[in-house]
């Protein structure tokens, strides 16, 4: 349903060109949940914006190929993208607290999208918005419809944003860390809700997160991003039980578990390099414990392994030890 190949975004700042993301390839099928995971600064959000065609707003130059339902999105005009965005592909933003226009009633903000993409009357759109809110278990939906964003709690705002995202019955939902701003208790509810939605309506969900726990709960596939590249992409069970890339291994090692020794919580040394000083070879080479001289000079190839996992690493055949 969605196939992204060799996607890259380029920005020119002060006559210097940087490419925060490049060589991004992954695919997903209808009804599947793809988790995109990576540290802050790995280019997850930018990838999402690129698929939505939103990078041009901030002056990004995009290359590669994005095929959605047989349509080449990068060849679409501005106007065509406007009718795809919000209708066929919808976006649930990172921060629900600030993602609603403060001067309009939340109900009207749901209605706005419905009126734009569905051929229905104002009255029908309002009815549909209230139905959506009830479906998302918003109590007193009719009253909440009339309220302004600042009058609602974070959990409610998140549900309004989700209602905006699912109201037009899109085929693909891109959710950018939809639960980071929420309490843990609300997080679980929202995650369950997403799972129900994808199963019930057979829509694809591209879920961006840095929370591996969330990924483990609901994803079918995973794409691990590091410094603007996808380093490992495959079936969730395969990747979790047998990670091929040292970075994936390290990420999994960082999850604390019950019964672990005090003080043994692991962390990956160092930071993600910034786009202006990405290393020449493998971008993880500066932090990788298995680094060989070749990694520092040559960009590794992406290899599809027998288990179906695609990995971008010179030492993919390494048998990484479990903790």
């Amino acid at each position: 349903m969605l196939k992204v190949s060799d996607l890259a975004v380029e920005f020119t700042v002060d006559k210097k060109t940087i490419r925060p993301i490049s060589g991004i390839s992954f695919e997903m099928q209808k009804g599947e949940v793809l988790g995109v995971v990576g540290e802050t600064g790995s280019g997850k959000s930018l990838t999402a914006h690129a698929i939505m065609g939103l990078t041009s707003l901030v002056g990004g130059k995009i290359s590669g190929q994005i095929v959605f339902e047989g349509k080449d999105l990068l060849s679409k005009s501005h106007k065509d993208m406007q009718s795809i965005r919000g209708a066929e592909i919808s976006f649930i933003p990172q921060n629900p607290m600030t993602s609603l226009d403060p001067v309009y009633r939340v109900g009207d903000q749901i209605v706005e999208g419905l009126l734009k993409h569905l051929k229905i009357t104002k009255w029908a759109a309002k009815k549909r918005a209230i139905e959506l809110m009830e479906q998302l278990r918003i109590p007193n939906a009719e009253r909440v419809f009339e309220q302004y964003p600042h009058q609602l709690s974070g959990g409610l705002k998140q549900r309004i944003v989700i209602a905006i995202g699912i109201g037009t019955e899109p085929k693909l939902i891109i959710a950018d860390e939809p639960t980071t701003a929420l309490d843990v208790t609300v997080q679980a509810q929202i995650i369950r809700l997403f799972k129900e939605l994808t199963v019930a309506n057979n829509v694809g969900l591209l879920l961006i997160t840095h929370d591996l726990g969330v990924i483990a709960q609901i994803c079918d596939k995973i794409a691990v991003m590091y410094a603007g590249n996808v380093v490992e992409h495959g079936d969730i069970k395969t990747v979790f039980s047998d990670p091929k890339h040292p970075y994936t291994r390290a990420l999994l090692d960082c999850i604390p578990y019950i019964g672990m020794k005090k003080g043994s919580l692991k962390a990956i040394e160092g930071n993600v390099p910034t786009p202006s000083n990405f290393p020449k070879g493998c971008r993880y080479s500066s932090r990788c414990p298995y680094v060989i001289p070749q990694c520092k000079t040559e960009f590794p190839e992406t290899i599809e392994l027998a288990c179906g996992t695609k990995v971008t690493c010179n030492k993919f055949d390494l048998n990484l030890p479990r903790h």
Partner: peptide, 26 residues
Amino acid sequence: NQDFVLLLHAKGISQNAIVIKHILRN
């Protein structure tokens, strides 16, 4: 540069409507 403008674009609202109805209004 506020988040809600990004969501409006993601909703497929036209540039003119975003500028007048939302950005100017705020």
